[in-house]
Simulated assay, not measured.
Amino acid sequence: MVAFTKGHGTGNDFVIIEDVDGALELTSTQVQALCDRNFGVGADGVLRVVRSSAIPEGAAALAEEPDAEWFMDYRNADGTAAQMCGNGIRVFVHYLLRSGLANLEAGSTLPIGTRAGVRDVMRSETGYQVDMGRWHLAGGEPLARAAGLSVARPGLGIDVGNPHVVVALASDEELDDLDLNPMPILEPAPTGGANVEFVVPAEPLVRDGVGQVRMRVHERGVGETLSCGTGAVASALAVRHWAGTRAPSQWRVEVPGGVLGVRMFPAEDGEHVGLSGPAQLVYRGEIDLA
């Protein structure tokens, strides 16, 4: 039997498994079984809590930041490994603190190893804020087709540690009418796939100096989720890009599971982007992975 904890960030839910010494080898089949909403625990992905020193992937994290004791081994619901998860890392840190594996004093940061590099997490008014690091335009404007969308729309490729294509829609009605259970079709298809976000800028776009946008997302390897942290970041970056140089650097992103905050800020190595939002642990249990 393996102990697990169920947690979520704005409805993006995870099965958390503590494996501090890296003794557990989770197979893709086991991850799929854990995430199955009918026959398993049910989740959008699995977070394995493991010391960076205990797994090969952690070596790069420790080389980047020797204090990155913990590594977030994140798997999508289909069992594939993912580079980064903005909601997941907040839940991951919340678990570390609640279980006594780490401390995070007010005003300090906790470095966490991920496949996208080390990410620094600190407390915020809404829960936790993550420095998602540098971002960049991925290039190209692939056409996106989705069920419920009458014609294909151009998207903007953005990389925030994992790949995204953001597509602007004209109205809330268009956004609500989408069926994102089938995977949207991107032409040309990005190598390795991408998360696809559909966004509607608010009217007015800026209120009290904060940009406003609604978003729905199809996550690669998962399907539609109630929230996607990196997707919220990509969406805010895309709308700011479209809006021009006078657009704000703070954004409020409304997702089906709640609200996330996005902030762009300068750093020594270029512009970084931060993500803030809540994290909750829901229940604990045991499951037979065999």
Results as ranks from 00 to 15, higher is better:
K6A: 13
H8T: 14
F14C: 10
I16P: 11
I17C: 13
I17S: 08
I17R: 08
D21T: 11
Q30A: 07
L34N: 09
D36P: 02
G40T: 03
G40V: 04
V46M: 02
I55P: 02
L62P: 04
E65D: 14
P66D: 06
M72K: 02
N76V: 05
N76C: 05
D78I: 07
D78A: 01
G79K: 02
C85H: 09
G86R: 03
V91R: 03
V93N: 04
A106C: 03
A106Q: 15
A106V: 13
G107T: 08
I112A: 06
T114M: 08
T114W: 05
G117P: 08
S124Y: 07
Q129T: 15
R134F: 01
W135N: 09
H136D: 12
L143N: 10
L149M: 12
G155A: 12
A170L: 13
D172C: 12
L180D: 12
L180A: 13
V196A: 02
P201W: 10
E203K: 08
L205Y: 05
R207G: 00
V210S: 03
V210N: 08
Q212P: 01
V213H: 05
R214E: 05
T230N: 07
A234S: 13
A236N: 05
A238E: 06
V239I: 15
P248G: 00
W251P: 02
E254C: 01
G257E: 01
L260G: 01
M264F: 04
A267F: 00
S276L: 02
G277S: 08
Y283E: 08
E286N: 13
I287P: 11
